[in-house]
Computed example of a mutant assay.
Amino acid sequence: MSNTSYIFVAGASRGVGQEIAKYLIAQYIKVKALLRTEVAAKGLEATGVLTVIGDALNVDDVERAILGNEPVQAVISTLGGLPTNDDKPDFIGNKNLIDAAVKAGVQKFILVTSIGAGDSVVAMPPQALEALKPVLTLKEQAEQYLMNNGLNYTIIRPGGLKSEPATGNGILTADPRIVGSIHRADVAQLVCRCLNSTNANYQVLSALDKNMIYPGLPEFIEFDLGNW
């Protein structure tokens, strides 16, 4: 990816999105982020992120952010609603981002969802699936919308997320049956590696820590990102 244009990150105020923004800035890559509050924006601006105040649920806000004066070459979305949110952005927010990315002609769109979405539903224990089903349904709708829009995409489905520092043991697999845990900082590194990986184009991948994969699962092949 070029150093003259921006990577747009949605969901950068917390969690994996925040880790992605921090990691990209550390690599001297320009980052632009859409944030709902001035407080969240100030925190990221201090790290060098260019911020735009707005809501992913508002089409005009999203278009103003992605189609603004600063060229955006790739979009990374980690949008996800909290259990307390009435209006969850998992589908509508991502749909708005995808539509704006199509208009902007971005080179790649990376969508971070969750194991349990789409065909990885087979990896989820029934009790967890029942609890998460409403949000997983929205995430699957976002995945399908992205895959059907002609954009160059990578979909990353992390396992159970932990907040400790990166371990360096994060891996990707195209096998939807595999489940386990991973640190948010390791997900961020895998997502950023996918930006420049042609192998990752048009792929749906699960992200896990190789030392935190649940026992008793079938043998699987680790996805090779190639030269990135």
Rank of each mutant, 00 (worst) to 15 (best):
D86F: 07
P125I: 02
S77I: 13
G80Y: 11
P83A: 15
V179D: 14
A131H: 05
V102S: 00
E63K: 07
K133W: 06
Q73E: 15
A117K: 00
S77G: 02
Y153E: 05
D119Q: 05
P83Y: 08
D99F: 13
D175V: 00
V102R: 05
A131P: 02
I98T: 07
E130L: 10
P165A: 06
R157W: 07
K88W: 12
Q107L: 11
A104E: 04
S77E: 05
V112C: 02
E164Y: 00
A74I: 01
A174E: 11
G168K: 03
E143V: 13
N148P: 02
V122R: 01
S120Y: 01
L111P: 03
N96M: 08
K88C: 13
N169E: 15
V122E: 06
A104M: 09
V112M: 03
R157V: 01
F91P: 05
V122Y: 09
V135W: 05
D61L: 11
N58G: 01
A74D: 03
G160Y: 02
G105E: 03
K95G: 06
V59Y: 14
S163L: 07
K103R: 08
Y145V: 01
A131G: 08
P83M: 15
A65C: 03
A128F: 10
E63R: 14
Y153K: 04
P126D: 15
L67R: 04
M124L: 10
I156P: 03
D61H: 13
E143S: 10
T78W: 00
L67P: 05
D175K: 08
Q73N: 07
I98F: 02
A142R: 13
L146E: 09
L97I: 05
K103I: 02
A74M: 06
D99H: 06
L82H: 08
V72D: 06
D61I: 08
A142Y: 05
Q107K: 15
G68W: 00
N58A: 13
T137K: 15
A65I: 00
Q141K: 15
I178W: 05
P158Y: 00
I92K: 12
F91V: 03
P158G: 07
N169P: 09
L67Y: 01
D86Y: 15
K133Y: 13
R177D: 09
N58R: 14
E63N: 08
N148W: 07
A117Y: 00
A166E: 10
R64I: 02
V72N: 04
V121C: 11
I171C: 06
I171G: 02
E164F: 13
L136H: 01
T154S: 08
G68V: 12
A123F: 03
D60R: 04
G150R: 15
K162P: 09
G68A: 00
T173L: 04
T167E: 06
V122N: 10
I178L: 12
F109W: 04
F91T: 03
N85R: 15
